[in-house]
Write a protein that binds this DNA or RNA. Structure first.
Lengths: 196, 196, 196, 196
DNA sequence: ACCGACGGGACCTCCCGTTGTT
DNA sequence: AACAACGGGAGGTCCCGTCGGT
């Protein structure tokens, strides 16, 4: 990895941290200068705007989450186990965050919702993909006879994502990971109860 | 209500809308001037800082939500019905928001989490109170024999709040109230299933 | 005139001077702050961008030139005399500038030509109007039998404007008003020679 | 020509174009990088500052104009014909520019006039030389009996340069070479009329 | 009770130039 | 001979807040 690419990665990492703590608008380029040890000229050599930095940091975060997901689901073949692994892994962001400051997808979703920030689209895509993954496993579990045939995969996806993201937020403000843990357990139990 | 108080209310209402859409940091005093039709001097006559306006708008939002809660629970005496009413009412923010832009408590929680904004405390208090309300009703329902004695009121409170707030967020970004509806139904069913 | 309008005029005047000396791009808002004694906030209260200030200053300059023209042509009824007055008045910018730094129309024309500045249109309009005025007087002079019927009013307008603007430039760089004087005399003589 | 010198020429040519269109201040080193395809380091290997590049480009422009002049006057021996050739050649910049964007001498004169740019001196020298050339031919024409002995060579030089430079400007903004053509014809006719 | 004028600081961006490395 | 990485400063814009007037 060349020196330039190393620096680029350093910027992305620093930006992800700052944005997740302070919000995209709340992070100033000065903050980023302080965190990276670079001057303005150094930053703008690697990115042409703050927005571009934000997008790169956001995508990097999503990649990291999905990598965690792949790792935890990797060895498992039973769809139900894969589903349970997904739930645990996503919920673990609540007590072992990928980047300090909660779930960046939720954070940027909320910040970008009505403001005209370009992160809305990225967040939507990620959430959509995650819900898809859940739906797929649910359907596979039904096919494998692990879940009752009448469970609604669409609804389960909405519930799992909503509950986990909400729990991460709640654990964040209250500085108490218990919320995320309880929600994780609830969702796992909920899945188990749906066996035929 | 005197003219001054009327203006004050007008400012609060406008601020609540702008903050819920753009975030507290994202709302500028100029935005507020445009929305209220007042000049700088007019705003600072009623409040001594942007922060004070933000706090007033936030508290006003919380009051509105709690008023909705009281209205929906008002006539009900059965703890289980009161609990179900709470769930429905909170979830309804997802398809019939008190103020456009989702749930202000969640939005400001996320914005204020690591930034040093004074809204963190207000948000914590509100979330804490809402969880308390749920715990109380759960305990009353247990006492009334409507719920199994071994259900964990603390966990239920975490789950209900988490799932609803997460669903409001999800419905917001995807512009699809279905998520909130599904979560509401899930939580109601979940409660019903816990009867002895 | 209210205090705000007074300040606005002060800004316009200062901007006209600075732009005519340093160019629009060359003038910084800091220069304007120093010249007006206002802070950034004060400037942006009256104009919403540097461009807007530039346009106002430019239009004000054109107005001043055209007012000079009206004054000098005012009492005259003979078209030939009016034409000669125009020549003298425009050329006088070379030794008695409306604003220090030469003719703002030419200066901004050159600066805006290929750059995408919005002043190009304003300059074109002014030059077009000035050429029109000359053409009109030439035609009137022909009708009055003061000029030969075969003189080309279009060509005379081009020549007069070109020679005068060029002379103002030349007098500027060489710091020698003689060029403008010579051109003025040449043009007057040229007109006189065209009598039938 | 070595590779280094070739690159140097490429830079000068690109700079002349950019400066003539955007002004010296308006041209950024990034523009020059884009136009030449070189990186920062490549540019600063051949020149030690932007100013130096500007000066080289400017001198190169002047050289090109004077080369055009020599070419057109080359075969002519009659002073009057040489004078007429000069007029036509200089005016031709209006419809067939040496570098797109008008006459660089005038453009940089105006940009550098009150700003403290080092191009003022170069421009003065060029204009001075051009006027000298005209004066010389006028005097030679008088001596040869081609012009009336009382014509003022100094005045003619001022008039010719002023009118042509002004016409180039006018043709530029109005995107209409007719102005330069008319002025050229006017000046030629003017010279012809001065024969004894 | 509200308007209008202004101060001064912070933010993002772009600029010119330097230095180490192929 | 040319590239790539970076420093540091300045530019235009917008921001929050103050204060005199009406």
């Amino acid at each position: 990895m060349s020196k330039g690419e190393q620096t680029r990665e350093r910027i992305i990492e620093a930006a992800a941290l700052l944005i997740n703590r302070l919000g995209y608008t709340g992070m100033s380029m000065s903050d980023l200068m302080a965190e990276t040890g670079l001057e303005k000229g150094g930053l703008y050599r690697h990115f042409s705007s703050k927005e571009e930095i934000g997008a790169a940091a956001f995508e990097s975060y999503i990649k990291a989450v999905e990598s965690r997901l792949r790792n935890s689901m990797g060895g498992l073949e039973s769809p139900r186990d894969r589903l349970l692994a997904m739930i645990q892994t996503l919920a673990s962001i609540g007590w072992d965050p990928v980047v300090q400051g909660g779930c960046m997808v939720m954070n940027l979703s909320i910040e970008s919702d009505y403001a005209n920030l370009p992160f809305r689209a990225i967040a939507r895509r990620a959430l959509s993909r995650w819900r898809s993954l859940i739906r797929l496993e649910v359907k596979a579990a039904i096919a494998a006879g692990q879940l009752r045939p009448d469970v609604n995969s669409e609804a389960i996806a909405s519930i799992v994502i909503s509950a986990i993201e909400g729990a991460i937020m709640l654990s964040g403000i209250e500085s108490n990971p218990a919320h995320a843990r309880r929600v994780s357990e609830h969702l796992e139990e909920f899945i188990r109860v749906q066996s035929p």
